[in-house]
């Protein structure tokens, strides 16, 4: 069974349809990279999948949890609160601009939700958080506040915060776009390490070399459609569609 299954998503803002019939399923341990021009609907797709945005049509499920089903007219029907709550335990999201909680130090940022939302034991969660920080090269920054960290460090903390919830799939929306070039590599290395540990991930990115390197599958989106998808060697290395070629030509230099 797929970890994530999206079928025929339609999403409009006002009269503008931003996602037009998008389907995507993600298997356990798979890393999917989503690429595409600005405004093509990549963020909107992640926001629908993470329930930050309500889709108008289509279905969404996480494993056996049917979060959004469709009526006979194809219109989305959301499951009740209880299912939604369970579904939120199955995914994590890493934002472009981190969204750490500024009034909490690094360790509190990581352990608070597992303790207060998942009702897990504080000592156990703290031990796991320390281990995560170790892996992120932040072992000695547990009591630092977000404002005292570089952007790259903040992003690694936000990845640790998402991982502490033990999600089945982790979404990233351009995790390095807000970072100075010299800081992106640290974050990309962290994500690559997660890929090697077979973490299921869906990553929106403009880093083509990185997508090619870590992704098992690349999805190219344009104007609310998936135009092309497949292995990175094909989609990035040898694209079929003219639109994909045009988009990728921007990155060749």
């Amino acid at each position: 069974m797929s970890v994530l299954e999206i079928k025929n998503i339609v999403k409009s803002f006002g009269g503008k349809t931003v996602l037009k019939d998008i389907s995507l399923s993600v298997e356990k341990g798979e890393v999917v990279a989503i690429i595409g021009p600005s405004g093509s609907g990549k963020s909107t797709l992640l926001r629908c999948a993470t329930l930050l945005e309500k889709m108008n049509g289509g279905t969404l499920s996480y494993g056996d949890l049917q979060v959004v089903t469709a009526g006979p007219d194809g219109k989305s029907i959301y499951a009740d609160k209880d299912i939604i709550k369970q579904a939120k335990q199955r995914f994590g999201l890493v934002f472009q601009n981190f969204n750490l909680f500024p009034h909490r130090n690094v360790l509190q940022n990581i352990i608070d939700a597992p303790i207060k939302v998942q009702m897990r034991n504080r000592d156990e969660v703290t031990a796991e958080a320390m281990e995560l920080l170790q892996k992120m090269d932040l072992a000695d920054r547990g009591d630092a506040y977000p404002c005292e960290l570089s952007g790259g460090q903040q992003q690694r903390v936000s990845i640790a915060r998402a991982l502490a919830m033990k999600p089945e799939v982790l979404f990233f929306d351009e995790p390095t776009s807000a970072l100075d070039p010299e800081l992106t590599q640290g974050v990309l290395r962290t994500i690559k390490a997660l890929a090697e540990l077979k973490m299921t991930m869906v990553i929106v990115t403009h880093e083509m070399a990185f997508a090619r390197d870590v992704a098992d599958r690349v999805v190219f989106m344009d104007q609310g459609f998936i135009v092309e998808e497949g292995a990175p060697e094909d989609v990035i290395g040898n694209p079929k569609s003219e639109r994909t070629k045009a988009f990728l030509s921007i990155f060749k230099d």
Partner: peptide
């Protein structure tokens, strides 16, 4: 307070009150 704070909290599963 930036909307990103609400969104981060939402994805982490905090209730509205929390």
């Amino acid at each position: 307070v930036p909307t990103g704070q609400y969104e981060a909290a939402d994805v982490l599963g905090y209730s509205r009150r929390q």
